[in-house]
Each structure stands twice: as C-alpha cells, then as structure tokens.
C-alpha cells in the first residue's frame, strides 16, 4: 500500500508499536477485568482490528469517516461489541477499549511527526475516525439489547392473549394489562381466528385484568366488537368493575352498542340464552356447571 500521507506511513511502519502501546493502555486501565477474556484472545482480536484499520486507511478514507473502505472494520467492530456484550463487558469497557486504540495511535504518531501543525491536523482526523468507531460500537451494543427487548415484547403479547373454549360455540378471552393499539390488533387477530376455527358464534372478552379504561381503550374494545360482528359472531364484554363503569360514564364514552356484563359468569349466562341453551340442576350429576 502506497500513500502520500506521512501520518499513515508512520503508522504502518510502527504498527507493532501501536499494538504494544494499545495493550499497555488496556493493562493500565483499572476497569479491565482480565477474568472475562484471556490476554491471548484480546491480543489476537486487537491485532486483527488494527490490521484491518490500517489496510482501510488511505489518503481519501482518512478524510471521510463514512467511507466504504471502513465497512470491514465496522463489521469486525460490531462483532467485537456483540461478543463483548455477551461476555459481560459493559458498553463503557468496550468504549474504553476503542479509545485505548486512539490513544495508542496518537502517541505513536507523535514520535514520527515533528511539524506541530501537521501533527495536529492528522491527529484530529484520526480522533474523529476512532470516535465514530466507538459510537458505532455503542450502537451495536444497544441494538443487541433492543433485539432482546423486542423478542420479550413479542413473547409477552403472545402469552398474554389466550383464547379459551368455554362451551360449544362460546369462546372467552381474558385480557390482562393495558390495551394499546398493537395489542388490540393481536387480541382481535387471535380471537377472530379462533372464532373461524371453532365456528363459535359468541365471544366473551373479559376485561377484569385491564387496569383502566380510557377513551382509547374503549375505542379498541368497540373495534374488536365491531370486527367480531362483521364476521357474524356476537361479542360480550365482561368483567367491568364499578370504577371502570364510573370512568366510562364520566368520560362520556358510549358503550350502548356493546353487550356488557359485570362478571364472566353473567356473560356466560347470557351467551347460553342467546344460544337457546338451558343449564339446569340435574338429579344425576352429569352437568358439571350446575353442581354449584
């Protein structure tokens, strides 16, 4: 690799020194925990990163932190960031690791370049570059975390919307937690899918587990009921606590188009009457519900 840039020449020449300095910087740092990663591993990845960085640096790329030449460097950097995050390093420690490289590069540069103005301008470019790398390693770390959160959110929504087949033709769905628009969509999807699969004509939506009903939640409930009716089934909302009834009226929300019941039991009862079913006490103990 030929370059006109003196600073780059110097760095390429003194690569080994840079690496040594870098490793030294890290050992000096109090925060380093050598129980998490062996010195050999550390040395190896650092060597690889430095090699790639020096290979990517040329007259044009040093001017532009977003140059495509750095793609490989950023790749390995994100790899390091992710593996370090898994090994239990804090993002700060990973940041310090990259800033250690910056320090090593700048220290080495100082030895070769005597013209202060030139040294200053080259140092500035290098710091800008390395700062950018540090930021991207932070980003990778956060992205990794976000993925975990996203997966957990998916899992929560998945497990929090069970559809229960309570009777032939009657489904019940207890909702626990706040109903936002994303959840409403999942609730609707699961409920309607189950209605189609079981051919149930009545669905009971129990909101005992919903902490509060504001106009937005009410709107979501109304939407779910309307969608159910559009499919040709009826939807009953049950589990309405007195304080919810109070807020609903105070907020001026009109729930008159919806069949509402105080408890799941009374919802089930009205479902039976809609299906023209009768549950009665029997002398032979064959009907479990009537045993109570």
């Amino acid at each position: 690799m030929t370059t006109k840039n003196e600073a780059l020449k110097a760095l390429q020449k003194r690569k080994k020194e840079v690496l040594e300095q870098w490793m030294k910087n890290q050992l000096e740092d109090e925060g380093l925990r050598n129980n998490l990663i062996s010195d050999e591993d550390q040395q190896q990845t650092s060597d690889e990163l430095l090699n790639l960085l020096l290979a990517a640096l040329n007259d044009s790329s040093i001017e532009d932190v977003h140059s495509r030449d750095f793609e490989k460097v950023l790749d390995i950097l994100s790899g390091i960031s992710i593996s370090r995050a898994k090994q239990g390093f804090s993002p700060r420690e990973t940041g310090v690791y990259i800033f250690g490289l910056k320090e090593a590069l700048l220290t080495t540069l100082q030895k070769d370049m005597k013209d202060p103005a030139q040294l200053y301008s080259e140092s500035l470019k290098l710091s800008k570059l390395l700062d950018n790398f540090a930021i991207s390693s932070f980003e990778t770390f956060i992205k990794g975390r976000e993925e975990v959160i996203l997966r957990q959110t998916d899992e929560i929504t998945e497990i929090s919307t069970p559809v229960i087949h309570v009777w032939d033709g009657v489904l019940a769905m207890p909702i626990i937690g706040t109903l936002d628009s994303a959840r409403t969509q999942i609730v609707m999807e699961n409920l309607l899918q189950e209605i189609v699969e079981t051919g149930s004509s009545i669905a009971i939506l129990d909101i005992s587990g919903v902490p509060a009903v504001d106009s937005l939640v009410a709107q979501h409930l109304i939407k779910t009921v309307s969608a159910t009716r559009l499919m040709g089934a009826e939807c009953i909302i049950s589990g309405i606590r007195p304080e919810i009834a109070q807020t609903v009226v105070h907020l001026g929300i009109d729930l008159s188009t919806i069949i509402t019941k105080a408890t799941l039991a009374s919802a089930l009862k009205s479902a039976f009457s809609m299906l023209q079913l009768e549950v009665s006490k029997s002398k032979i103990n064959s009907i479990p519900l009537a045993a109570r």
Binding site: Q185, M188, E189, L192, Q193, I195, V196, K223, S226, A227, T228, L230, M231, G232
Partner: peptide, 19 residues
C-alpha cells in the same frame, strides 16, 4: 347475509371505517 369473512378482512374493514 354475507358469510365466511376472513378475520384479516374484518379487521381491515373496521380500521378503514367501513361497517
């Protein structure tokens, strides 16, 4: 009587505001 509407269609119609 319209029969057999798909769930996704019902949800979309409600969102669209077409009852």
């Amino acid at each position: 009587v319209v029969v057999g509407m798909q769930p996704a269609v019902a949800i979309t119609l409600i969102e669209l505001g077409l009852p």
